[in-house]
Design a protein around this nucleic acid. Sequence first.
DNA 1: CTTGCCCACTCGTCTATACGAGTAAGCGTG
DNA 2: CACGCTTACTCGTATAGACGAGTGGGCAAG
Lengths: 262, 262
Amino acid sequence: MSPLSSGLLGDLDPTSDRAVFRQIADQLREAIDRGRFREGEKLPSEAELVDHYGVSRMTVRNSFSILQGEGLVHAEHGKGVFVRPRPPVRRLASDRFARRHREQGKSAFIVEADAAGSHPQVDSLEVKEEKASQDISTRLGSVRRVLARRRRYLLDGRPVEFATSYLPLDIARGTPIAEPNPGPGGIYARLEELGHRLDHFEEEIRARMPSPAEVKTLHLAAGVPVIHLVRTAFDSDGRPVEVCDTVMAADAYVLSYQLPAT
Amino acid sequence: MSPLSSGLLGDLDPTSDRAVFRQIADQLREAIDRGRFREGEKLPSEAELVDHYGVSRMTVRNSFSILQGEGLVHAEHGKGVFVRPRPPVRRLASDRFARRHREQGKSAFIVEADAAGSHPQVDSLEVKEEKASQDISTRLGSVRRVLARRRRYLLDGRPVEFATSYLPLDIARGTPIAEPNPGPGGIYARLEELGHRLDHFEEEIRARMPSPAEVKTLHLAAGVPVIHLVRTAFDSDGRPVEVCDTVMAADAYVLSYQLPAT
DNA sequence: CTTGCCCACTCGTCTATACGAGTAAGCGTG
DNA sequence: CACGCTTACTCGTATAGACGAGTGGGCAAG
């Protein structure tokens, strides 16, 4: 039995001043919310909805485009339109850079992912010296050039995060920090070995829609925002020693912070 | 001189395999990024672009719809399509609930906004007892019913945040917390007076596209995500005494956290 | 059985047209 | 001068049709 004859979707209200394509989107959204269509399940095809509602194809596509913008569904060329599955999320705890987590040889990302039973990967590794942007320069205290460490993180083959660390050259140049693999405990461990005892971090969080470049790098579906996190690390002299600029697929992350009430 | 004859926008590449409406969107996006169209400025009308590129109107509208999805532009019926201005953002510092900020009579929101020179407002105040959702019940330690305090925050007339606080009935019922105006220092001050000395907060942050209800409540333009923040307050006995569920217009906020490096 | 082609079905792109409705400016009337 | 109407321009909604391209199943040839 076709899903359309089974009363999953209702009729249009011609007397309503709500646009037809919105009414259709409303009905589909409600059906999804109520679980009539489950995650990953295929929605009726455009042609089926054209028949069911007696509207033109562009009207149906208009409805789908609303739901895509809300991140509820995604279209696959040649296959159909599907309810977008909610991917497993990665929780980032606020103590993830605590010194005690820095003892092991592997990076926090790898350890965490292994623990969660997923397959972690890091690629697009790039380490180079470059001119600091205005923003980075300001955050690092008026430096002109910086060491930039770029990398992309993937979980089970899916890119979830793209991060760039910036460090002042006078700190990083010629040290293991300038190597592709900085060694156990990562660059924070190296910074401390170099005499920059870390005191605290500042994190700034924004959310926005991705740029086309970010869509490409993170393989983002329509309707998925990004979380933009900029972390600055300060040593015990109060000097900023690193800025890490991170763009995360918002549907793959929950950030978690613990704050004292003092 | 029309913006279209002045070389602001280029030509289409018919040999490219990139769809025409994407090429047009690319050109408009680049013009915006380069500042050729400034914030709040009107883009060429659909009709003008139809003439300029020699395409049909639906193709131009398709281009605009891409840019709208990216949150770059917004259309106004009868007026035109405009570059979306970046609204002033509100910075939320991680110490915003520190005890020392609780001394004054006014709420943190009012004080902050006044200091920033904007006009703050709180409306949609609702205080009532209700059944706890599964999630809230879990967070508060298996309570069945809760006191819910709902309110919407506006800056200069624009809604920016919608928040609901949930408190266990055995704590809140019959206290000033159950009043629309809980008095100076807010409910956290009242909780401490009632013997629940606050120890720490946990905040969980997600970003996603808004539901239609959220679009309505926060007057969100297309392409603006929301930040969903859930804060749990714990007293010195380790008991969760409040859960605050907040949905913020992502283009109006930067969250800022300070973390120890220990 | 395997290979390769065809075909039906899917969404993607684009055109052309029509009418509705919000906006703002101009113009004429009182 | 003030008000209201007209008009031109804007985007919103909807139809009908065409062709392209990705997918997957079935069928026929080897």
